[in-house]
């Protein structure tokens, strides 16, 4: 690696570090309760959805909470990143108005911030594996791939969320509703195998479907994910990045006009 490239990488990492650390402190506060709040949130979401699924379908499904967690854990990262991204520029308006810095890192730092909470919430999965006595298989090696694709999809969603947050700040609650709708239009509450009919054929179009099933394959079913489960969310992430990052870069010099 050349000295120039090394310097640029170091600078980018330094910027991401300070933006993320400041973001965490501003959004999540400080002190010991911070970690508790992070981890408690997905557990609370899991509890709510679990209650919903028991009311709707009864508790007969095997390892219902683990199956649900395979969807909730990655979805929480995506949802939290969208919410964070939508408010990221306004949160940093005082800095944007004061000095030039690579604003392209603002959405990226939103994703990194929420990824730290996401890593903490991954602890739900082994706990539930123990509870349901689900053994570890070689398929667990797919989990890092699933996590990487989740992070990439979150990064991709951060850019349109940030753009929407500065262009149409009033629509932020609507964006959250759209994200939640996407969850319900994927096999989040129940696994894809339990879905039948036309819905079974259509659900794989939703990138969340492949993502959720990837986690279930690696953790719950102990099988390798099918190619489409990787490729659909991966392709969606790349496509969103290719479309929105250039758009965001062009808009970046105008951030001060929008927040000023």
């Amino acid at each position: 690696m050349s000295a120039g490239l090394r310097s640029r990488v170091r600078r980018t990492l330094d910027l991401l570090h300070v933006l993320t650390v400041s973001d965490i402190r501003v959004r999540y506060g400080r002190g010991r309760l911070q970690a508790v709040k992070w981890v408690a949130d997905p557990f609370a979401a899991l509890g709510v959805y679990l209650l919903l699924i028991i009311i709707l379908f009864g508790s007969g499904t095997e390892a219902v909470a683990l199956s649900l967690a395979c969807a909730i854990v990655p979805f929480q990262l995506l949802l939290a990143t969208v919410i964070n991204g939508a408010g990221a520029v306004n949160l940093r308006s005082s800095i944007i108005l004061n000095m030039k810095f690579p604003g392209v890192l603002i959405p990226a730092s939103a994703m990194v911030t929420e990824s730290i909470a996401f890593i903490a919430t991954l602890s739900i999965l082994p706990v539930l594996m123990i509870v349901y006595q689900v053994g570890v298989t070689f398929a667990i090696l797919w989990l890092p791939v699933a996590i990487a694709i989740t992070a990439l999809l979150a990064l991709a969603l951060a850019y349109p969320a940030t753009l929407l947050g500065i262009w149409y700040p009033d629509l932020a609650p609507f964006v959250v509703s759209v994200a939640r709708a996407a969850f319900f239009l994927a096999p989040g509450l129940i696994a894809l195998d339990a879905v039948t009919g036309v819905a079974r054929d259509l659900l794989p179009i939703n990138p969340l479907t492949g993502l959720f099933e990837m986690y279930r394959d690696a953790i719950l079913y102990g099988v390798s994910p099918e190619a489409w489960e990787l490729l659909v969310p991966l392709g969606a992430a790349v496509l969103i990045l290719l479309i929105t990052v250039p758009f965001y870069r062009r808009e970046q010099p105008n951030l001060a006009k929008l927040v000023g």
Binding site: S22, R92, S94, L97, N98, M99
Partner: peptide, 10 residues
Amino acid sequence: SLLATDAGLA
């Protein structure tokens, strides 16, 4: 630079 009224501080 010190341009914003809050000096760019969070």
